[in-house]
């Protein structure tokens, strides 16, 4: 039985010649992860790519195996949240969002409120967090926009937040302002008076 299992995983490795770049022990371990992922219907290309990335970067076999295992787990989490019909690109973007701090519930909510593909929405979510926006604020913003906004709208939203941050706004506030506008920016409000990041009347004597 052990021999059969070994032959099986080795066969996967042989089937994809790109894995020849891995040392034999690592190749067997990575092939096992690939085969396991394939068995449960997860995309294997991202896993193979993650292994190849490790090779190029001179990572040890142990690090490569740990990375592909972690990715496989994250892909599984993403698939559970987004559903079995999720495309490979969506799952990869979902993994990026999860690692940025989004929760599986956020992904599931996004799936419920927006028609696929979700790739751009998920990428925008990950981008916002990478910009320094707190994960829950970024998730709330994307979820609020998701039902109606087009992909281009989401990209523009992210750019608008970028512009606000460029002008000195804290990332969380920039997102809230862009999403809620009036909540932080309403003229004559206490919030406005205390917001150091809006130029309004800054230079008034």
């Amino acid at each position: 039985m052990m021999l059969a299992a070994l032959l099986l995983v080795t066969q996967v490795a042989v089937q994809d010649p790109r894995l020849e770049r891995l040392d034999p022990d690592t190749r067997v371990a990575v092939a096992a992860v690939v085969d396991s992922a394939h068995g449960v219907g997860l995309p294997v290309e991202p896993i193979i790519q993650r292994a190849l990335e490790g090779v190029t970067k001179g990572a040890s076999g142990a690090r490569i195996v740990a990375a592909v295992r972690r990715l496989a787990v994250d892909l599984g989490t993403a698939r559970t949240a987004l559903g079995t019909s999720a495309a490979e690109a969506e799952l990869e973007a979902a993994v990026a969002a999860l690692r940025a701090g989004a929760t599986p519930d956020v992904l599931a909510n996004l799936r419920d409120v927006r028609r696929p593909p979700l790739t751009i929405a998920l990428a925008v979510l990950a981008d916002l967090v990478a910009s320094g926006v707190p994960a829950d604020s970024a998730a709330a913003a994307v979820l609020a926009l998701a039902p109606k906004a087009r992909d281009a709208d989401l990209v523009e939203f992210r750019r608008a937040v970028e512009r606000d941050i460029t002008l000195g706004a804290p990332p969380g506030a920039a997102t809230s302002v862009r999403l809620n506008a009036g909540a932080f920016d309403a003229p004559g409000t206490s919030s406005t008076q205390g917001n150091p990041n809006t130029p309004r009347r800054r230079s008034r004597p």
Binding site: P134, D136, P170, G172, A173, T175, G194, N195, P196, N197
Partner: peptide
């Protein structure tokens, strides 16, 4: 100077 709550739940500001 302004401090924003990490989760976006509030802020403090002084000028």
């Amino acid at each position: 100077m302004r401090w924003q709550h990490p989760a976006g739940r509030g802020f403090l500001s002084a000028r």
